[in-house]
Write a protein that binds this DNA or RNA. Structure first.
Length: 936
RNA sequence: GGGCGGUUAGCUCAGCUGGUCAGAGCGCCUGCCUUACAAGCAGGAGGUCGCAGGUUCGAGCCCUGCACUGCCCA
């Protein structure tokens, strides 16, 4: 059967086909191990960071997924039990907002709909639009196990969420209380510290006079000036605080002041926390609207007056300002203060203002009753797991960042005032007011109050922070909390997972929470042998690889407002998935952001085209050979290519090269050096295989003459085995094109259903060690030939020899090189465009009319009767001599230095000696050549 | 304010525990439609490794200071 490949590579023609094939054939499913099946420990388990159901694929996803896919495919081909588990996150706020917008367009609201109908509506939305991002992922060819796809609100995951809450509650690690939280007036919910982004903003610092009162409550005429950036909060002031040692205010200790506008008497208190240097050294205290003031209020038992409602409008506690938006109120208050002569000063001030991560609204610190996780006990284990090395970070510096954050962690506010999410499993009693949380391991909802027995209980309306459920994923996807003898196979086989690949932006949101929750709950599950699970086996993953941010070509962060967002799907349809994947891989060096440049992608599309055409060339010759009765054996393909010891130099050279590149690629991938691995393959395939080996092989594939079948067959079997191994090597990076060519290579009967099930080229250590000395000299001979070829072509260019013309050369070189040349005569003559060689040991010193080139062990000239450009030659030689002299001087200085000779390692000294000797020879030759030039 | 990175060719970036490390791709120049590929082939030019000190026989690599720049946390 003849192969048919179009001349130019067209990714769109093949990618959809294979993407669908992989899913349809269920090639990447990793079944639950059968009971009693031996777990050999060679497993690779990785969890996809679940994208939001509302999400669309962006470049960050694509980088993340490309890296995970490369690793998963690589380990799968390496023989591991590989499982990559996909799913989506219900994304509380984001999804709720999406559906609310939809409702708004219809002139409705969730309040009109009511909670249940609204939830049904969101589910509906999810069923219709929620899978979009997963469909996009399929287009990228990700090798995930679709049979295990989850959604964080799935029944079984919801069970886990409820159980986690219940356990933590009964362990005394969940409490409810009124604290200052970050309140988003737009989303109308509390958000965690992590969901607040701080931005510098120019604003004002208002200084306000609070009149000091005497014991009778009358103005003394004196006043105390406080500074504030949020004057509207003064409506809720319940004290003024000064530093106890501040001499300016000592006489006011214990006195009272009149709160302007509200005409409330509030005390002057003293507290060490007050900074004497900030503003006037006196601060207003608003316990219900500032976390520091809240702490102050607790210490001094101050009343906490909340003056704002959920939408950040002043409430009834705000007197005359009730009903005003916070910023309207601010203006009016400033105006009124000024009118009353109580505004002492207005200063420009830049401060950090918190914004809602989701909607960018300015966050209002606000007193509110919320649910919290007492985090320290969980954090302690999470710290231990990392400090003891049970979880390793790459790059390593994230370990420090993680530990630093963990050491300064605050209790986690887990309640959200949303309707979409896991509703908190706690019931309030209308009679006694106490809270009932179901017992451990129970399933049904409680029917009566656990404290007074009343049946008048209603479930908490708040839902849990989305990260509470995603933080449980590593345990919950494998069946926790229902792990018993009958269903523990998944957990035994796949927990802990091997690796987590993610961006640093969710290091705290997600990675840290998974570590805390995993280390907290997994120890409840016994090890397969029945022993207690140690912390080292409780971690949710053993390694974390943190990748960089994808920026645009100008290193700008991609953002919708800037309009510089690159849509991966758009680029993929233009250049092909393989090219985009390769771009990301080749730029993914740890620690640095990726400036995504399509110029680079163009280059890798060209690379794909190169691979395509190399295959075309080889296939065409295989077909031609078949016509001539030469059948190339394909049965031995699939391993590491080898070659007989008496094979031609170039065969041994290319085989050695692919063995070497395999070893390097494997090493690089072990260290997540996608960039290195990609570059090795690229250099090898394009440089060594296509530009050198195939060009050489063409000489042997000459069907026009009386065919030497043995020669053609030998050449073809090297070509095809190197191609086939290269495809496997490249497959994790470029799964589509490699699959297509690989399938064609086997002409419809491949040894596996997919190249993804073939074995990755890995060289066994023992074999590479054999005959290494001989191999070394072999490679050196080949390198010499190639260097000589380049020198000759360069010389020809300088002389202006026509491209098509071959010329005689004169060459002086050692016998060994001469022997290699003679043995490789057929291709060497063709590639170096040589018609005949005159070997001459005195080359370079005679024939002054020739233009000589010299290497460390050869002197060569192209015989071509064109007058030399003496001036240009002289310039080139002088430049070269200068360079060599510099090199020689520095080398000789080292060798003359007794310290160098005694303290540097032997191989360095030897290397330096060799270099100096070589430089001397070259210098001598260059000087001779210069002297031989005719005078100007 | 605290912490962590970065500064290497025109551009984007590699460069391991100091010693054949001054590299790659793109771009640029010159010549080629050579038995796959012009998305190609061949040959070439281009850098005092941010600045100033120091350690060392030896410094893009280690130390100190400075400059510029990015990020995280308060």
């Amino acid at each position: 059967m003849a192969h048919e490949l179009p001349k130019a590579y067209d990714p769109t023609a093949i990618e959809d086909h294979w993407a669908a094939y992989w899913v349809r054939e269920r090639l990447f499913e990793q079944p639950t191990p059968a009971a009693g099946e031996r777990l050999d420990g060679k497993s690779f388990v990785i969890l996809l960071p679940p994208p939001n159901v509302t999400g669309r694929l962006h470049m960050g996803h694509m980088l993340n997924q490309t890296e995970m896919d490369i690793l998963t495919r690589w380990r799968r081909m390496g023989g591991d039990r590989a499982l990559w588990l996909p799913g989506t996150d219900h994304a509380g706020i984001a999804t709720q907002m999406m559906v609310e917008r939809q409702l708004a367009a219809e002139g409705a609201s969730r309040q009109q709909l009511g909670r249940e109908a609204f939830e049904a509506r969101v589910w509906d939305w999810k069923r219709h639009y929620g899978g979009a991002i997963l469909e996009q992922m399929k287009r990228l060819g990700v090798s995930v196990d679709w049979s295990r796809e989850y959604f964080t609100m799935d029944e079984r995951l919801s069970v886990a969420v409820r159980e986690a809450f219940v356990r933590l509650y009964h362990q005394g690690l969940i409490y409810r209380g009124a604290y200052i939280v970050n309140w988003c007036p737009r989303c109308q919910t509390a958000i965690s510290d992590l969901e607040v982004t701080h931005e510098e903003q120019k604003g004002h610092l208002w200084e306000v006079r609070y009149p000091v009162l005497d014991l009778a409550g009358k103005d003394t005429g004196e006043s105390i000036t406080v500074a504030t950036t949020r004057p509207e909060t003064m409506l809720g002031d319940t004290a003024v605080a000064v530093h106890p040692d501040d001499e300016r205010y000592k006489h006011l200790h214990g006195k009272k002041v009149r709160l302007p506008l509200m005409n409330r008497e509030i005390p002057v208190i003293t507290d060490e926390w007050v900074s004497r240097d900030f503003g006037t050294g006196a601060v207003k205290v608003t316990p219900a609207h500032d976390p520091n003031d809240f702490a102050l209020g607790e210490r001094h038992h101050l009343p906490k007056i909340n003056v704002m409602d959920e939408t950040a409008h002043i409430n009834s506690e705000g007197g005359a300002y009730a009903g005003l938006d916070r910023y309207v109120a601010r203006k009016k208050i400033v105006h009124d203060l000024e009118a009353q002569g109580l505004l002492a000063a207005v200063k420009d001030y830049t401060n950090n203002v918190g914004h809602c991560d989701r909607c960018k609204t300015v966050v209002e610190p606000r007193l509110s009753t919320q649910w919290f996780v007492k985090i320290q006990p969980l954090a302690d284990r999470a710290i231990e797991a990392v400090e003891k090395g049970y979880i390793r970070f790459t790059p390593e510096n994230y370990k420090k960042i993680y530990l630093n954050w963990m050491a300064n962690i605050y209790d986690w506010c887990i309640s959200r005032q949303l309707w979409w999410g896991h509703r908190i499993p706690a019931w309030h009693c209308a009679v006694c007011g106490k809270i009932t949380v179901p017992g451990l391991g129970t399933t049904g909802d409680p029917k009566e109050c656990a404290h007074c027995g009343s049946g008048e209980i209603t479930q908490e309306t708040d839902v849990l922070d989305t990260w509470f459920s995603s933080g449980l994923l590593p345990v919950s996807v494998f069946g926790w909390p229902k792990i018993d003898e009958t269903n523990r196979a998944d957990f035994d086989a796949f927990y802990p997972t091997t690796l987590l690949v993610t961006g640093f932006d969710i290091l705290f949101f997600w990675v840290a929470r998974m570590i805390m929750l995993g280390c907290w709950f997994a120890p409840d599950i016994k090890m397969p042998d029945g022993s207690d699970r140690p912390l080292a086996e409780s971690v949710p993953f053993r390694e974390v690889y943190i990748h960089a941010l994808v920026r645009d070509a100008n290193r700008e962060k991609m953002s919708k407002t800037k309009g510089n967002v690159l849509d991966p799907i758009e680029i993929v349809s233009k250049y092909g998935t393989d090219a985009v994947r390769f771009t990301l891989a080749s730029m993914a060096s740890p620690g640095t952001d990726i400036a995504f440049n399509v110029a680079r992608t163009e280059g890798y599309r060209a690379f794909a085209n190169k691979i395509w055409n190399a295959a075309r060339f080889i296939f065409r010759n295989v077909d031609k050979a078949a016509e001539a009765g030469v059948i190339v054996d394909r049965s031995a393909l699939g391993g590491m290519p080898t070659v007989a010891d008496d094979a031609p130099l170039e065969d041994r050279w290319i085989i050695d090269a692919i063995q070497g590149v395999s070893a390097r690629v494997n090493d690089s991938l072990k260290e997540y050096r996608f960039d290195e691995a990609a570059s090795y393959i690229y250099q090898f395939f394009w440089g060594s295989f296509c530009d050198t080996y195939i060009e050489i092989a063409k000489v042997r594939l000459d069907f026009s003459n009386e065919p030497t079948k043995y020669q053609i067959k030998a050449a073809l079997s090297v070509l095809i085995s190197v191609l086939e191994a290269s495809l496997r090597l490249l497959s994790p990076f470029m799964p589509f094109i490699t699959e297509e060519i690989w399938q064609q290579l086997f002409e419809g009967s491949p040894p596996e259903r997919s190249i993804a099930h073939a074995r990755y080229p890995i060289i066994e250590i023992g074999r590479i060690g054999a005959a290494i000395g001989e191999k070394d000299s072999l490679i050196r001979q080949m390198d010499r030939l190639l260097t000589l070829k380049t020198e000759l072509l360069s010389l020809r260019k300088e002389l202006g020899v026509e491209e098509k013309m071959s010329t005689p050369i004169v060459l002086g070189c050692p016998p060994k090189l001469q022997e290699s040349i003679e043995r490789s005569r057929s291709w060497f003559f063709r590639l170096a465009k040589v018609s005949e060689i005159e070997y001459d040991q005195s080359a370079g010193t005679n024939h002054p009319e020739l233009k000589w080139r010299f290497g460390s062990d050869f002197v060569v000239a192209v015989v071509y009767n064109k007058p030399n450009d003496v001036a240009a030659d002289r310039e080139r030689l002088m430049k070269e001599i200068a360079k060599l002299e510099k090199q020689l001087v520095s080398g000789e200085r080292d060798l003359a230095n007794p310290n160098f000779v005694s303290s540097a390692p032997a191989h360095v000294v030897d290397g330096r000696k060799k270099l100096v000797a070589e430089t001397r020879v070259l210098l001598e030759k260059a000087r001779a050549a210069l002297a031989a030039l005719p005078p100007e």
